[in-house]
Design a protein around this nucleic acid. Structure first.
Lengths: 134, 134
DNA sequence: CTACAACTTAAAGTCGACTTTAGGTCAAGC
DNA sequence: GCTTGACCTAAAGTCGACTTTAAGTTGTAG
């Protein structure tokens, strides 16, 4: 497949594919002259990268997780990530519940509502930044 | 309170406070000469901003939600955000379950595992980018 | 065989949320 | 009254993940 085919099949732009290659996330199978050509298995690797982005991994982290040979992931890192996701989900649920309450609470303003006050404190304390762009 | 007090109490840097002011998120109560001084209620507003960041709002969105007078939030936007959070949570749970399975699946590599394959497709299709940095 | 669409590279630009820097002002303690 | 540390502003820098641009090369349809 040439780069345009991979782009179409993956939904990524050619420039993104070159960028991923530069970062060491994918490799082309070779060149026809200057032009890259790819093995279709690159699509599986890209799907995996996409998945990683969705769970909040940076490209660098994904690079470390993707085993060099073949298309696979480090299981230990996967388990760690699962635990992290559990925490994130719990946080988001707490916030969701607080927002839901605040939106329906009859207090004159949200800061007058004790449930909302707990929520604000929760966000201030318990939640560490979910610093990612996915 | 002067800017250093607000910084200490909120955990934000003075530069961040000036930046938020520039964006119209907070206001100082006035100046002593050049120096800003703040009403303590700014801390509540900052807590609210912090909360907003945690649910994935941009500073601009937060600016639109914070009612100009006093410290409060637009309830309709709050409800909408609650619904959005519900979706995000559901997505994250699906991914979490998939990762959990993949990490413990006996298939030789994850791509050989049908559950993992479904997960990869899910991430590719159903999940729209959670494009935020918190 | 030629035209040209599609590829190539390196480098610079973008976006959001800040942080840092450079250069200047000033309230307060000695 | 003088020093100094904390404050001020405007502008530039940073980070991650790309995208865009500028300038050049080439496989391939006609």
């Amino acid at each position: 497949m040439d780069i345009a085919d991979v782009a179409k099949a993956s939904g990524l732009k050619p420039s993104t594919l070159r960028y991923y290659e530069q970062k060491g996330l994918i490799r082309s199978a070779g060149r026809h002259g200057l032009r890259r050509y790819y093995d279709p298995s690159v699509l599986e690797k890209l799907a995996l990268i996409n998945l990683g982005r969705h769970v909040g991994l940076s490209l660098d982290e994904i690079g470390r997780m993707l085993l060099p040979q073949g298309v696979d992931i480090d299981r230990a890192l996967l388990i760690a990530k699962t635990a992290e996701l559990d925490k994130q989900i719990a946080s988001m649920q707490a916030i969701r519940d607080g927002l839901h309450h605040a939106a329906h609470c009859p207090a004159p303003n949200h800061l007058a509502c004790p449930t909302f006050q707990r929520l604000v404190k929760l966000a201030g304390k318990r939640l560490k930044p979910l610093t990612h762009k996915i």
